[in-house]
Structures are given as structure tokens and as C-alpha cells.
Amino acid sequence: MLQVKDVHTYYGNIHALKGISLNVNQGEVVTLIGSNGAGKTTTLRTIQGLLRPRTGSITLNGEELTQVPAHLITTKGLSQSPEGRLIFTRMTVLENLEMGAFARSDKDGIQRDLERVFTTFPRLKERVKQRAGTLSGGEQQMLAMGRALMSNPKVLLLDEPSMGLAPILVEQIFDIIRELNQQGTTILLVEQNAQAALQVAHRAYVLETGKITISGDAKELLEDPRVIEAYLGL
């Protein structure tokens, strides 16, 4: 479904992605793990069109995305909960969710997805009128995910949804990821919390300084000694 082929992304002279290839199939949860600075966020930003790859191709259902302007990529079916959440702090929870559906015009569909977001995150429903900046960290993460879901994406990209959350909330977020997937959402999940990510994912890629070094079935990676040593801290 989503296919990334030999993508090279630069920040000025810094060669951040050195030929990344990965693919996400319909209905899957795929996780991309790696240590700080490996290039996970850069990969998601490149897929979303916020950064342009110097070479390589990114396709969604066969359609090339590298030339599509960033704001139209959402329309093509990609949305994300970005690193740092980046919610609209001076808008209400409801306005944030409305903005998530900015690219759509099907009123009924938007309403349906809003209901769905509220069922998934009942907390958000209680706080529709609250300014998003005053939400707790966990609520902000839920809002960021809810906002991304409001575009009804074909592939949902999540950048470290568990970052900075208390263990109980982390568990809850991973439960939600599983639940969303069971409802049919295809997910590309970036995580530092490799253990939890590998447990929820079908397949996984390990990213090291801009290159994919290991890939395969998530359950197998959980037992791979290289992964255990470097990322599972056992």
C-alpha cells in the first residue's frame, strides 16, 4: 500500500536518510524502531511531504507522492500524529478535530469519524470545549491521534505516541493502536519503546543512522539477539 523506495533525505549537507526502503501493507501495523537521531522522524516527515527526498520514491497505492505538495498528501490518504504532537494549542479540542478534517468535504463522513474518535477517546468528548493547550500530556497525545484520524487516512503515521507518558497511559495508547488496527486502520508506528511496539506490530524495521539494518516479522525481531541487545535492554 505505502511503499518507500531508496529514499535519501538531507538537511542541508547532513545526509539524514541514506536510502530507506520500506513498505506497509493494507491492514498492517508496521513499526520503525531505532535510537535517538536514527532518522525515524525524518522518515515520517519525508513521507508526509514536509521534507523532500533528494532521490527515491514514495508511493501510495502506486501513486507517486514525492512531487505532491505537502497539503495535498493528506488528501491522498496519509496523516500523522507528529513528534511533539503539534496540536493547535490555542484552539479548542473540537476545533482541533475539525481541522483534522480540513481536507475533506463529506459532512456525513466527517461526523461519523468524529463519533468514532469520541468512542475511541472518551476523554476528548468530555473536553470538546477546552483549549487544547491546557490538556494533559496524555490527552494531547490522544488529540493528536484523533486529529490525524479525522482525515480518515489510508495509512496512519504515528511518531512516538508514547513519549513522555506514564506507564499506564503508555499501555492505554498501545491498546488503542491495537484497537484502531483491528477496526481496519493501517498504521506505521515509530517508537523508542521497542518492546511495546514490537508486541503490537506485525512487521518491523530497525533504523540506524539513516539506514535500515534489520527488518522482518515483529515477533521474530523480539527474539533477535541484535535487537534484544540494542533495543530491548535485556
Partner: peptide, 24 residues
């Protein structure tokens, strides 16, 4: 208005605006 809200969203966070499909 939709457009006005999009304008505010862009002012608050440009990347997030682009992610939700706003032409920054």
C-alpha cells in the same frame, strides 16, 4: 469560518497545518 480557522491553525503550528491538509 473554515478559512479563518485554517489561518489561525497555520499561525499556531505550520507543520501541523500542512499535515491536516492546509496550504500553508
Amino acid at each position: 469560518t473554515r478559512l479563518g480557522k485554517a489561518m489561525r491553525a497555520t499561525a499556531q503550528n505550520r507543520d501541523a497545518a500542512a499535515i491536516v491538509g492546509i496550504n500553508v
